[in-house]
Design a protein around this nucleic acid. Structure first.
Lengths: 122, 122
DNA sequence: TATCCAATATCGCCATTCGATATTGGCGGG
DNA sequence: CCCGCCAATATCGAATGGCGATATTGGATA
């Protein structure tokens, strides 16, 4: 977790956060506070100043739809995924499998370049 | 692929590109043109104006190390991963498994919020 | 040494991230 | 009925990143 507090490493995983959000919004209506708690559970620290503008953009882009409700005396905006959001998630599945095949299962092929050359041979 | 040409969707997958790069740099020395070709093979379109500043930042952050070589009469800068780069990749493995468990295997738990409430029940 | 060209570097503009701060909206007390 | 309270959401300003377009580098050939 500490590794995620470093600014540098955040960029590696911000896309992961988006996909987590899209996934949850595809299963149930989720609001900002729910998502912040869930991302925290995953070890991501997403502040309100990042999350809410992100939700607005995803909505404007047609990936999420918003519905206002009052829960426990508080106004909340619940987001659900749209077909376009599901399409992004489907695309993500393909790319996730590729990435897992390389990074997790260590099955990436050499990409050419210097693979044929000896690295230490002189 | 077409989906990746849209500006909106790039942000979802830019972290994937970083991890692909880190992975390849952990297996063999890779240079800019190699990486652009490899990313293209994966369906990502990464321009030179994005890739090279990225490599510089990863090097300055200590995740990559650079070595200049002359190949086929052209100067190339070959990058290899460092222990710090391997650490980021190890962290990525953990988070990738979480994300795959949700997005690919569809096993994410409800995150609370409105899960207990009926959505259509009234 | 002059020129060519692939590989790398940089520039300017716009979008995004972030913590901090402001605003909204329902509710209970008076 | 209005007022202040507070959680939830919204926005601000500074810094950084992504991008296409353009500039620069450096080895090789003649």
């Amino acid at each position: 977790m500490a590794i995620l507090d470093n600014d540098l490493f955040r960029d590696f995983f911000l896309g992961f956060v988006r996909l987590h959000i899209l996934f949850h919004a595809g299963h149930e209506p989720v609001c900002g506070v729910d998502l912040m708690a869930e991302m925290d559970r995953h070890g991501y620290r997403i502040g309100a100043g990042t999350l809410y503008p992100l939700l607005h953009r995803l909505e404007r882009a047609g990936l999420l739809r918003c519905e206002v409700r009052v829960v426990a005396g508080r106004q909340r905006k619940y987001y659900r995924s749209t077909p376009a959001g599901a399409a992004v998630l489907a695309e993500a599945r393909i790319r996730l499998r590729e990435l897992v095949g390389e990074v997790v299962e260590d099955q990436g092929p050499p990409i050419g370049g210097m693979a044929a050359q000896k690295e230490d041979g002189r």
